[in-house]
Simulated scan of single mutants.
Amino acid sequence: MCRWTASVAHLRPEPALGAPAAAAPPGRPLPLPSAASLCLACFTLLLVTSGTATGACAPGGRNEPLQMLASGVNCSWTLERHTRSYNHLEGDVRLRRLYSANKFFLCIDKTGKVDGTRRKNYAESLMEIRSVSVGVVAIKSVSTGLYLAMSKKGTLFGSVKYNPSCKFKERIEENGYNTYASLRWKHGGRQMFVSLNGRGKPRRGHKARRRHPSTHFLPMLPS
């Protein structure tokens, strides 16, 4: 890119910084720039053009590569790294039936009772799972309109109004099932999970653990 073949005349030492440049003898052309100076100029020009083309140096909304180079500022460090946005996840709604590893579908009846059923197409087991923030969901029964909620003591119930007790942290486990832990409440520093025991009855959140099959749910598409 910057190939330059220096002649013998160009191998003499350059004048010291600040010293006046020697005048060329009469009748002789001025000496050409050295190979190092020419390569440095090419490299500077390459930086300027590449920064302008890619928009890498755009302080204040416009490209100012020459001013940046003149001030000695490194363009690569003047750009702020923007945090990746996950706002597209907020408000996402899925219609699912939460099928537990114990072979029960989670349901909420009109009285607010949370239970498990083996009936596949049971109306009260169809849930609306809405993302309220990254990794946090609200679960609502489509037929009853009640939100799944957990009390401070770890009891599951259906809430008429959406409130902080209705927020659950959704996590995909290694076996492909999901777990749902209360975002608001903990017991002794431990998370409390939505859980159905072997008889399909809800367990207290503080008695469930992440590795227990009773806390594992598979969100199934409604048939």
Rank of each mutant, 00 (worst) to 15 (best):
N63M: 08
F104K: 05
A53I: 11
T155M: 13
I139E: 05
D92W: 01
Q67E: 14
T49M: 08
H82G: 01
K152F: 10
Y86M: 09
L47N: 02
T83N: 00
T54E: 05
G112S: 07
F104N: 04
T111W: 07
S76Q: 09
S100I: 10
M68N: 00
V132P: 01
G55H: 10
T78S: 12
N121G: 02
V132H: 03
V134I: 15
L47K: 03
K120C: 11
G112E: 11
A101F: 01
T49W: 05
K153A: 15
K152C: 14
A53K: 10
R94D: 03
Y86V: 13
M127C: 06
R118D: 11
I129Y: 03
N74D: 14
S76E: 09
R94Y: 04
P65T: 12
C57E: 08
N121H: 06
Y99K: 11
G116L: 14
L98K: 08
G72M: 04
T52C: 10
I108G: 03
A101N: 02
Q67F: 10
G60K: 05
L98E: 01
S151I: 10
E64P: 00
L66G: 01
A56N: 00
S143M: 11
K103P: 01
G91D: 01
K140F: 11
M68D: 04
T54D: 03
R94N: 05
V142G: 01
V134K: 15
F105P: 04
G112A: 05
V93C: 02
I139F: 10
R97G: 02
G51K: 00
G154N: 06
L47D: 01
K103E: 15
Y86P: 00
R130S: 14
R62H: 13
A123Y: 13
L98S: 05
L79R: 12
G154A: 05
R130K: 15
S100K: 07
V48C: 08
K153Y: 12
G135S: 14
G116A: 12
Y122H: 14
N121S: 12
S71G: 08
D92H: 06
R81E: 13
G60I: 08
R96N: 02
K110A: 15
G112T: 09
R62K: 13
M150E: 04
H88S: 06
G154Y: 03
L146A: 03
I139M: 10
N87T: 12
G55N: 08
S151Q: 09
E124T: 15
L126Q: 09
L146S: 04
K110S: 14
G135R: 14
M150L: 05
S125I: 10
V142A: 04
Y99E: 09
K103L: 13
S141D: 05
C75I: 14
L66K: 00
I129K: 02
T52R: 06
A56G: 02
K153P: 02
R118Y: 02
L89V: 11
V137L: 07
T83Y: 00
V136I: 15
